[in-house]
């Protein structure tokens, strides 16, 4: 598949930029400096989360791109998605999946900062082969400049994206009430962005969905699903409490889509920009659907351990820190009571 016309015109790109700004501002509004500090209080959970997000996920993305024999532009996009930090969407899903929201928020905060170092390294590791392929085909087509992975630009884009996040955090400090509104607006904007992108792509290329080969669908849907699965597996091997497992799983599979859009727009050029963008759009669309189903599934399997955890929290709050509740096995079965 080749997209021979720009997916978004400059006006649409500008609009998208503003929306990303709003979303990142809203993301900042959910964070407090305490979230960064408390990341250090859960070292085990955080370590597993880190390994899962920056170890597993890029590897999954690379393997998928390799196995599905994706065209190099889309392969780079998939690896890029695999290397992204987490977003606030995952915190919301963690909440409804009866996961640990605190761990999810800490992982989002930590990974967003760590991405500044990790992304260039990981892209170098997994995407340089695909980048060479793009370079070769461009030169063969007579493009003198060729293509090189824009590491510096990616870091700059990431830094730019962090500016509204910091602004959002400042708002949160001064007005929690307005911060909540900013958060809701940003959440709403996430749906709008996806709809906006899908519609504008369809206006210009009405048969884009039909033209897209199945491998690209498989890649954009599979990367999230594999992230959920392997994230959960890794947390299980590490014997994390059940609610942490669900958080790590969701945090691994759900990436910060808006950052992907920002990086692609700011750091990549045509002809590969539109193709990368399309894969990012597909990922963002499908991840909402797949994580909804995964969340419903987690809600169901986590019912008992979550209720025990909540009950223990209330007991300790009201009866004293040292209060320990013993549940008879006949009533709760062999549930992990941590």
């Amino acid at each position: 598949m080749e997209i021979n016309q720009q997916l978004l015109n400059p006006v649409e790109q500008g609009l998208l930029g503003i929306m990303i700004l709003i979303i990142m501002f809203g993301m900042g509004a959910t964070l407090t400096p305490k979230d960064f500090r408390s990341a250090l209080e859960r070292p085990r959970g955080m370590l597993i989360g880190f390994l899962s997000q920056f170890g597993l996920m890029p590897l999954i993305a690379f393997s998928l791109a390799y196995m599905l024999k994706l065209p190099p532009a889309q392969a780079i996009a998939l690896v890029l998605i695999g290397c992204l930090p987490g977003g606030t969407t995952s915190n919301m899903f963690a909440y409804f999946a009866r996961g640990s929201v605190a761990l999810s928020i800490s992982m989002t905060a930590a990974s967003t900062v760590l991405a500044l170092i990790m992304m260039p390294i990981l892209l170098d590791l997994y995407a340089s082969g695909f980048a060479a392929q793009v370079d070769a085909s461009l030169r063969a087509a007579g493009d003198e400049a060729g293509f090189a992975m824009p590491h510096a630009n990616i870091v700059i884009s990431l830094l730019l994206v962090l500016v509204p996040v910091a602004a959002g955090m400042t708002l949160r400090r001064f007005s929690p009430d307005w911060a909540k509104t900013a958060e809701d607006t940003a959440g709403f904007m996430t749906i709008i962005v996806i709809l906006f992108l899908v519609t504008s792509a369809l206006i210009r290329h009405s048969n884009l969905f039909v033209l897209t080969p199945w491998q690209i669908y498989a890649g954009s849907i599979g990367v999230g699903l594999a992230g959920f699965l392997f994230g959960f597996g890794m947390a299980t091997v590490a014997r994390l409490p059940p609610r942490y497992k669900r958080s790590v799983s969701l945090e691994t599979g759900i990436q910060n889509g808006p950052i992907a859009f920002a990086i692609i727009l700011l750091s990549f050029r045509e002809p590969i920009q539109s193709e990368m963008l399309w894969l990012a759009i597909l990922y963002s669309t499908f991840i909402v659907v797949t994580s909804s189903f995964v969340t419903l599934f987690y809600r169901r399997i986590g019912k008992t351990d979550w209720e025990i955890y909540r009950n223990n929290l209330v007991h300790q709050r009201l009866f004293g820190e040292d209060y320990r509740t013993q549940y008879p096995e006949s009533a709760v079965g062999k549930t992990d009571q941590r």
Partner: peptide, 20 residues
């Protein structure tokens, strides 16, 4: 016999102080 040491009733002494 079955629920043993689990709390059955809790009495409020204070906002965050309850006696099980």
């Amino acid at each position: 016999e079955t629920f043993g040491e689990m709390p059955a009733f809790a009495t409020r002494r204070n906002t965050l102080q309850w006696e099980p």
